[in-house]
Design a binder for these strands. Structure first.
Lengths: 167, 167
DNA sequence: ATCCAAGTTTCCGTTCACGTCAACGGTAAT
DNA sequence: ATTACCGTTGACGTGAACGGAAACTTGGAT
């Protein structure tokens, strides 16, 4: 499926509306990554650009840009490896399929099934996040407690000091 | 300073009490790491074993075993690199020095200064943790919200289905 | 005294997640 | 058409964080 649009040729055009097509440098700038990273992610099958131009130039849509930030969060905040992220996203992509099914007027039962799958994937992710949150809170509380003990000791010492200076 | 104790020879003995001396395999097992990792951490100056026997065998004390789990938490929960962890621990070690100063009957002002330093380092760490917690919570809320939207859609579809089956 | 599991050092290898450089091609505006 | 930039595909390099094998020593139980 090759469609001419202006003077440029796209290998794939699913929607004819006015969605902006981003070049790789654009996406890199707004997400704070490098083009290399985006190509690497594509290399390992983590992020497929919306389309390749005949010249090979990648074109991204807003959906991919959002996916990029999502991936970053999974990476930085949850400490997942790119492989684990692939798993997570594979589950999540069910949602995308559901949306496409909606566009395609798919039968309601099928759409419901897809939705249920997406919901389950989402639930698992939220569980993971909550688990991590709990562990970090625990760790923080330990640190805070240590701080409290140190402050108590500090007061003690200061009292000693005052007593000593009084005589 | 070499002291004979039973038939074994220690390069360094600071406390004569009954603190158990752990061998590397022991520490590895209880912390879930490998001996290789512990040696690596020593190599980069992250974790000094309490003592080396004449043969080169490492002996750890409880303090080091705790330090190991602490490092793991900084690594896994906060996603710090070993270099960053070194920084954090360098600050935190002030506390250890403070304790030693206490043992050595150091002057109170000095002990207070050490305590203040340790407190500040601790405060910075807690801040970091809180910041991270906030970001993760934000991320979780986004996910939860998405889930809510999906559930709403689900109800809608189910209603459609019921309407359709009624006629 | 002997034996072996567990320790040691040294050195080289690996995986992950990119960075970097070269050589080249296409795009956009003048 | 020229110029100034993107962008492309390799290929190789890198830093962090270890893994693994070889060759040797040691501690502790039998």
């Amino acid at each position: 499926m090759t469609v001419a649009r202006g003077s440029e040729t796209l290998d794939r055009v699913d929607d004819p509306d006015e969605e902006p097509r981003l070049r790789i440098g654009e996406v890199a700038r707004v997400t704070g990554l490098t083009a290399r990273t985006l190509r690497y992610w594509e290399e390992i099958g983590l992020l497929k650009p919306f389309a390749h131009r005949g010249s090979g130039e990648r074109l991204y849509s807003v959906a991919e840009r959002e996916r990029v930030t999502h991936i970053r969060e999974l990476q930085d905040l949850l400490g997942l490896t790119l492989a684990e992220i692939q798993d997570v996203l594979a589950s999540e992509d069910t949602l995308e399929r559901a949306r496409r099914a909606a566009r395609a007027d798919a039968p309601t039962p099928k759409r419901l099934r897809l939705l249920a799958d997406a919901l389950e994937a989402n639930g698992r992710l939220v569980d993971r996040i909550n688990e991590r949150l709990a562990r970090i809170k625990e760790f923080r509380d330990e640190c805070v407690e240590r701080g409290d003990r140190m402050r108590a000791r500090q007061l003690e010492l200061e009292a000693d000091q005052r007593r000593a200076s009084r005589r």
